[in-house]
């Protein structure tokens, strides 16, 4: 055996002795966004900022009928033209961001609060608690969301509180389903079993074992859910059953200005476009985070 081989052999054995085996520790993975993802984050951030400082930067008040006429193209300070009552479209979009995004965000947060609490509870407790909540949940889930919205609004009328509450309850059902499934997956993991065998209480298990492991998947789901809620609220508004005039909201703005389309006015297009930028950006971020190597095997086929 040559000298070189000898040292190599010693190296291998030394490695075995120090590491116990091949060091196969993977490097820590951090979320790295692609440029598409980064742009999307910027878009979402932009709208969130608009929500907060909107009224102070808008050229006009959302209800000011300052324009020369209705359905005008862009001129002077009316960068996006005027709407069917001669109000500044841009200002109404800026004000509307508050309603559309604000109501959606509030509903989604409320839905998460309810969904996660009940979902984790059902997963951890199991038994009849789980059975009971799940059955009711399945029944609500078995209905088209827009139908539920219509039924509730038919009965109660429309106000912001009712919108938030309705959307929250409707979407809490899907959050419940996901939180419960995640919870159940985690609950059967050996590390939870180990905690149970140790004698840990339910709250400790939820706090230290279940929630940290459910956080990331729930965060991505939050994005998707927010998109659904935005679409839901906008659709109701579009039907005239959501945010009530004269307050501005992207969905109702499309409805109000729909007739203008035939005169070639873009007043209905801009708010629709605003919704699209917000929802598409969120979806792109979620896609970027949860991008999987799906189909890598498919590329190997001939």
């Amino acid at each position: 055996m040559t000298e070189e081989n000898k040292t190599k052999e010693e190296e291998v054995i030394a490695k075995l002795d120090t590491f116990d085996e091949l060091p196969d520790a993977p490097p820590k993975r951090r979320i790295k966004l692609s440029w598409v993802g980064k742009i999307s984050v910027a878009v979402v951030a932009f709208w969130l900022v608009i929500c907060i400082i909107g009224p102070s930067i808008a050229p006009y008040h959302e209800m000011d009928m300052e324009g020369d006429d209705s359905f005008l193209d862009a001129y002077d300070n009316f960068y996006l033209g005027t709407d069917y009552l001669g109000r500044d479209t841009l200002s109404r979009i800026i004000y509307g961001a508050r309603n559309t995004i604000g109501i959606s965000l509030a509903s989604t947060l409320l839905a998460y609060l309810m969904g996660i609490t009940l979902g984790i509870l059902a997963a951890v407790k199991g038994g009849w608690i789980d059975m009971g909540i799940s059955r009711v949940n399945d029944a609500i889930l078995a209905l088209p969301t827009i139908m539920l919205g219509l039924i509730v609004i038919a009965a109660l009328g429309s106000s912001i509180a009712i919108l938030v509450g309705t959307a929250a309850v409707i979407y809490a059902t899907s959050v419940f389903r996901i939180a419960r499934a995640l919870g159940q997956d985690i609950m059967v993991q050996d590390f939870v079993e180990a905690a149970k065998a140790r004698g840990e209480g339910v709250w400790w298990i939820i706090r230290a074992e279940v929630l940290p492991n459910a956080a990331m998947p729930l965060a991505t789901d939050f994005g998707l859910r927010l998109v659904f809620v935005v679409l839901f609220i906008s659709s109701l508004s579009f039907l005239g059953l959501g945010v009530q005039p004269p307050a501005s909201d992207w969905g109702s703005m499309v409805r109000e200005n729909l007739q203008g389309l035939t005169y070639g006015s873009y007043a209905a297009i801009w708010p629709a476009f605003a919704i699209a930028t917000f929802t598409i950006a969120i979806n792109l971020i979620v896609d970027d985070i949860s991008a999987k190597s799906g189909g890598s095997l498919a590329k190997k086929m001939v």
């Binding site: 998109v227 679409l231 906008s234 659709s235 579009f238 969905g251 499309v254 409805r255 729909l258 389309l261 209905a268 297009i269 629709a272 476009f273 919704i275 699209a276 929802t279 598409i280 969120i282 979806n283 792109l284 896609d287």
Partner: peptide, 16 residues
């Protein structure tokens, strides 16, 4: 992805 991210009325409005 874009289509499912936007409201139905957006598609309809653009088509009109």
């Amino acid at each position: 992805m874009c289509t499912i991210s936007v409201p139905e009325f957006f598609i309809a409005t653009i088509l009109v």
